[in-house]
Design a protein around this nucleic acid. Structure first.
Length: 491
DNA sequence: CGGTTTTGACCCGCGC
DNA sequence: GCGCGGGTCAAAACCG
């Protein structure tokens, strides 16, 4: 068999009894196959998102793994260089225990801060419910902070794909969220509100797309099909047969792809029964050191933090693509719009392929990310990679502000339908404004770069490099309305 | 023994 | 209608 995507390596067998999220995250790390490219295992920090550092994560197996990464980015841990194989340089040895403790303490503080923020959101929600005339239950009778399963920050297609089923039989993703009191004035489950507050922009953008629920639905069948088929592809240099993205996968097929001597492997998510997420893993025909992983669909179950990073990031990219793919009121397919915009802002980061069978966002991590503006690097340097979903969510949010997108924070009944009634042209403008601003794409790529640096090198505080040539020249790529593929190159 | 991988068969959409 | 290619199924083999 060709040393292709599959390579006869098994996805890690993991306990079917899931004690989310700690158990899974820990297990995924500990049982990582040695020949698997680990994108998201961040050895020094992780779960500041919602969990204490003092818990189970601390006993990660820190075996050095030769990921086979040939990443061009410069890996750093708190400013110190590390080799690509994840081992530290000599200077690392000089790090004192105190320094590590200080770092840990910083992360703990950040963890607490985020917890407080979440708690505040929950309290806010609770307060709003108290103000209603309806009888209600406290958000959390124990008075403790409510732990939210990870999917609540999933920006992904689930809201599009699965809300379809929600309207009829209560979508699974929605039900994965903890039950908040539903007996509100509007009778609406206010988990929606929590979603809004955690990621104000991205989720509302998703709802802009989701016009089916409010009866004003105007997304036709073709668009729905496009939505379901939208994919996010990640290109990365790796000799490993597969990247570790925090999820469990089961291989269900392999095919020889036309024009590629390397087989394409098909995987489905096995973290939950009936999870619709699939991924394809193949190698680039031109450069077999490049591993191409394509994700489709969205998880219908809680994800470990490591998986959230990938899920949210790819979903954000997909969201952007899908937003741009919506037919606008003036009849222009906005993928054109988006494509032109991307070209205009950065040809080095955006290429378009008409060969993709489905709308595909490609995150190209095979190039050096060292070409971002210093300001942007500084924005993300030192960010905890476990915060990637927030980084991207914030990125989306910030860019929406830049673009003048002022989506109502109001979560009263009817808001969703109001959002759904926003004109498509307005959405197109929003998407365009979003993507016109190079900060967004830079942010996305930088965040990914941080992940890679962190995952391969074990560093948590990854600084992107110093070289800051940011070229935004034009490109002569073609645009295909139906089969657009946007490729963000960290070049 | 249960879960995963392998691999040929099958299905389906698309272009001619 | 036919062939092709992508994607999935499912039985057998494999593995821990």
């Amino acid at each position: 068999m060709d040393a292709g995507a599959d390579g006869g390596h098994s996805s890690h067998s993991q306990p079917t009894s899931i004690q989310f999220p700690v158990k899974l995250y820990s297990t995924a790390t500990d049982h990582k196959p040695l020949n698997e490219m680990d994108f998201f295992t961040d050895k020094n920090n992780h779960d500041v998102l919602l969990h204490d550092h003092s818990d189970n994560y601390s006993d990660h197996n820190h075996n050095d793994v030769n990921t086979g990464l040939h990443l061009l980015s410069r890996n750093t841990i708190s400013g110190q260089s590390v080799r690509d194989d994840g081992t530290s340089t000599d200077s690392d040895d000089k790090r004192t225990k105190d320094e590590l403790e200080v770092e840990l303490e910083k992360m703990s503080i950040e963890n607490r801060r985020l917890k407080q923020e979440l708690h505040l959101m929950m309290m806010k929600l609770h307060k709003r419910e108290e103000n209603s005339d309806e009888e209600h239950k406290p958000v959390n009778e124990g008075g403790e902070m409510m732990m939210m399963p990870m999917p609540f920050i999933d920006l992904g297609l689930a809201s599009l794909e699965d809300e379809n089923s929600r309207s009829t039989s209560e979508g699974k993703i929605h039900d994965e969220l903890p039950r908040l009191p539903v007996n509100n004035v509007d009778g609406r489950d206010h988990r929606e509100d929590v979603l809004d507050q955690v990621l104000p922009c991205s989720n509302k953008v998703s709802r802009l797309n989701d016009t089916k629920n409010d009866g004003s639905g105007s997304i036709d069948q073709a668009t729905e099909a496009t939505i379901r088929k939208a994919r996010v592809s990640v290109r990365a240099k790796s000799e490993a047969p597969m990247i570790t993205d925090g999820c469990q996968w089961r291989k269900y097929g392999q095919k020889m792809a036309k024009g590629n001597p390397c087989p394409r492997a098909y995987y489905r998510c096995t973290m939950a029964a009936g999870c619709p997420v699939r991924k394809q893993v193949k190698r680039c025909a031109e450069d077999r050191t490049i591993l191409i992983t394509t994700y489709e669909g969205n998880h219908n179950h809680p994800l470990p933090p490591a998986a959230m990073a990938m899920s949210s990031t790819t979903s954000s990219a997909a969201r952007m693509l899908l937003s741009g793919s919506m037919p606008s009121s003036d009849g222009i397919i906005n993928s054109n719009f988006l494509a032109r915009t991307l070209f205009a802002c950065s040809s080095s980061m955006a290429t378009i392929s008409a060969s993709a069978p489905f709308p595909t966002v490609t995150l190209d991590l095979t190039q050096s990310p060292n070409t971002f503006p210093v300001s942007q690097q500084q924005n993300f340097s030192g960010q905890n990679t476990a915060l990637l979903p927030q980084i991207i969510g914030q990125s989306l949010y910030n860019q929406s502000k830049f673009s003048g997108l002022q989506l109502s924070q109001d979560t009263e009944a009817g808001t969703i339908s109001q959002l759904g009634q926003l004109s498509r042209a307005g959405l197109a403008d929003t998407v365009t404004a979003l993507t016109t601003n190079p900060n967004f794409t830079n942010a996305l790529i930088t965040a990914f770069s941080s992940i890679i640096s962190g995952g391969s090198g074990g560093g948590s505080h990854t600084n992107t490099a110093v070289n800051t040539t940011n070229s935004y020249s034009s490109n002569n790529g073609s645009v295909n309305n139906k089969d657009s593929e946007f490729c963000f190159r960290g070049n």
